[in-house]
Write a protein that binds this DNA or RNA. Sequence first.
DNA 1: ACGTGGGGTTGCCATCATGGGAAGGTCAAG
DNA 2: CTTGACCTTCCCATGATGGCAACCCCACGT
Lengths: 168, 168
Amino acid sequence: MNIGEAAAASGVSAKMIRYYEATGLLRAPPRSEGGYRVYDAAGVHTLRFIRRARDFGFAMPVIRQLVGLWQDPGRESHDVKELALAQVAELRRRIGELQMMEAALARLAASCHGDARAECPILEDLAMPRAGDRAAPFPADKNSSSCHAHQAPESASRRRPASRAARS
Amino acid sequence: MNIGEAAAASGVSAKMIRYYEATGLLRAPPRSEGGYRVYDAAGVHTLRFIRRARDFGFAMPVIRQLVGLWQDPGRESHDVKELALAQVAELRRRIGELQMMEAALARLAASCHGDARAECPILEDLAMPRAGDRAAPFPADKNSSSCHAHQAPESASRRRPASRAARS
DNA sequence: ACGTGGGGTTGCCATCATGGGAAGGTCAAG
DNA sequence: CTTGACCTTCCCATGATGGCAACCCCACGT
């Protein structure tokens, strides 16, 4: 079984199979006389295991542990469950993060008229400094959400570019 | 205002400020005689805007659009709202994905005893081929979740490594 | 006036998982 | 024996970020 067939059978791209092998996640399979990687059913099975673990969002180091446990007949299911629960916690953390963003942004979007006028609470909120920001040295920008005269595009640049130019 | 102060005032690291400038998200600020970037309050304000947009998970190309709209007095709030709603949809899509994973994995973890025994439904599920997988050429692996004799580690490798070795 | 430390500048490398592509070797079918 | 599909390795890129190295600049202290 060549790498292409193994890829089709496992759902892992050939590129990724080589990558997993290079990073030590997979043991190198034997090679044919021409140097082709030759996979057997067990190898494909391992690849499917890895893909399934990735589908659950496990990071590669954890997948390495999982594969090790899977192939270890003396494993204790306690260790597997611990990894799984840690991943559940991580997923919940990420879900919570995204939900915070989603709720805040949906609320903002709902408050925006969405018409042809320039006034927009979304931009106003984005432009608003929040608690936790160090104060700017002078609060001179009152017309925040309509500032259009920002930094000068090209003015008096590189008065002494000698050293930088010389280095390259 | 040097880049360090601008970073502290905006919450964007100096590294990221340079990165945003290099990728065209920020216009290059004027430089001092020594070549230092010099930021004014408007520049810091823009940086805070960008950081806030990143906090909402907007991708950089979208942030570019948002900054453009923000600085465009002739903008229409419709365009802003459209970007925001697209981002809300994207966040919901990601949340849904993660929730699928989380639910499935939590269910699996709950079904695992988590004791000293090797038997583990989590590993069994990971090892189980799902619908959508191309069938393996022969279904020879019945003792799936306890397979420990996988590929041979080092056997008859590189019978003809001449070309590869010669190239490097 | 001179040194020194802190901070600026560029550039390169690394992440993490993945894809793309080039240059070259292998294999199987016609 | 040719040809086209497939494999091999190596290099590069992503997106957003951090780290390090080498070098430069500035302000402050003596």
